[in-house]
Nucleic acid binder design. Structure first.
Length: 376
DNA sequence: CCGGGGTCAATATGGCTATA
DNA sequence: TATAGCCATATTGACCCCGG
């Protein structure tokens, strides 16, 4: 694969300085747990080095919790995010929207209504008793019902606050470890954590930089999305596609979705890279499927982007049945086939900035920042 | 039919690391 | 010292096939 070194135009070359080892947590990203978040510094630096021309928008076709969208918003660039996961869409929308009027009071009323609900209807959710204590189930059910009927425009914010505490009040050990453990939580903890999640979210929203640009978030499958849904010309794409056979976003948010009345199994079916597709068997996915999916995505990006626009990807490697797959090369080749030229490819060290990685088995210590430019 | 053996996918848990 | 994480894989259980 050709590697064209970036030769800059007076700026310090973007080939260097992507590690951000000293990055600290950002309050806006902390409003809801989400796996594999961008460090905000990465989209920030990409926007800085490859700014879209005036009037053009930024697109993140795998927007997740919306980090890239917030960075665009903060510097006045309108943006569009797409994600198949309704939890991702909820987070992206709440973090980029106006603060709903009277949210704290409404949250208080919701809590009171929930406490007064003496016969909450607990929905039918698989393995519910295994993962939630009965009194916790009742409290969550009461809160969801009270949120459903609350007035004002803060329903999404309250749903986000409730969603953010689900794993903490469940028996699940941690967000990524699916083991049931004794955690000593009761209904009171549910209400307390809900209350503080609302406050934390409002505080984070209040402390945002002055908002200069609109953010539109679309819940859709990028593989089948109607091009006309992307209703602004796109001058810059900043995204991190899901890695095949790596993390499962649907699984991470499974009980959040059940509780909010959403369907995690439908999300699983369509999620790119979900490990369920990679089990051994006749229909199991391989790296070839990921190639096909990326070719599809790059075709869509070509259609919505302007000539000269940059498409930036942060991608790592993954392991499929023992084989290490270099996803960056797959994305770069798909982009080249769709009419993009490689402008930059550089490795960034992830060990220092991510506390989570356990890829020692594969000796994976870096991920790739890849920038492609749309040709005419 | 029915039950043993095989296949496959869903689920749960062990193990490890770096960070707070 | 406890916590939490773009994991790997053991365990479990649903399902199928086939011979009796």
């Amino acid at each position: 694969m050709n590697h064209i070194p970036f030769t800059g135009m007076g700026l310090p070359g973007p080939n260097e300085g992507w590690d951000f080892a000293d990055s600290q947590s950002d309050p806006l990203s902390a409003i809801h747990p989400y796996p594999a978040k961008f460090i905000p510094s990465i989209p920030r630096k990409l926007i800085e080095h490859f700014p879209p021309r005036k009037g053009l928008a930024l697109l993140d076709p795998f927007c997740g919790s919306g980090t890239a969208l917030s960075e665009a918003q903060a510097v006045g660039i309108p943006s569009i995010g797409v994600d198949i996961n309704p939890i991702a869409v909820m987070i992206s929308r709440v973090r980029s929207s106006e603060i709903p009027a009277d949210a704290l009071n409404i949250a208080q009323q919701v809590e009171m209504a929930a406490r007064a609900d003496l016969a909450p209807r607990v929905p039918l959710i698989p393995r519910l008793d295994h993962w939630f204590k009965p009194q916790v189930q009742s409290a969550i059910a009461s809160l969801t019902k009270a949120i459903e009927v609350c007035g004002g425009d803060c329903r999404e914010l309250l749903r986000l606050a409730l969603s953010s505490i689900i794993v903490r009040v469940s028996n699940q050990d941690s967000d990524t470890r699916y083991a049931a453990v004794e955690k000593a939580v009761d209904a009171e903890d549910v209400y307390e954590r809900f209350r503080s999640a609302v406050k934390k979210t409002l505080r984070a929203l209040e402390n945002r930089p002055v908002r200069l640009a609109g953010v539109e978030v679309i819940e859709a499958d990028v593989l089948t999305i109607d091009r006309s849904m992307i209703d602004k010309p796109i001058g810059l794409v900043v995204t991190s596609p899901p890695y095949p056979n790596a993390y499962e976003y649907w699984l991470y948010h499974k009980y959040r979705m059940w509780w909010l009345g959403l369907d995690p199994l439908a999300v699983k079916e369509r999620e790119i890279g979900a490990r369920a597709h990679f089990f051994k068997g006749r229909n199991s996915h391989t790296a070839v499927d990921f190639q096909r999916q990326m070719a599809n995505v790059l075709g869509m990006l070509r259609d919505v982007m302007v000539v000269g626009g940059h498409a930036c990807f942060v991608v790592g490697r993954s392991r499929i049945r023992g084989e290490i797959v270099d996803n960056a090369t797959i994305v770069a080749e798909a982009a080249a086939a769709a009419g993009f030229r490689e402008v930059m490819r550089t490795e960034r060290v992830i060990a220092a900035s991510r506390k989570s990685f356990n890829l020692s088995h594969a000796n994976i210590k870096t991920e790739t920042v890849l920038v492609m430019r749309k040709q005419n």
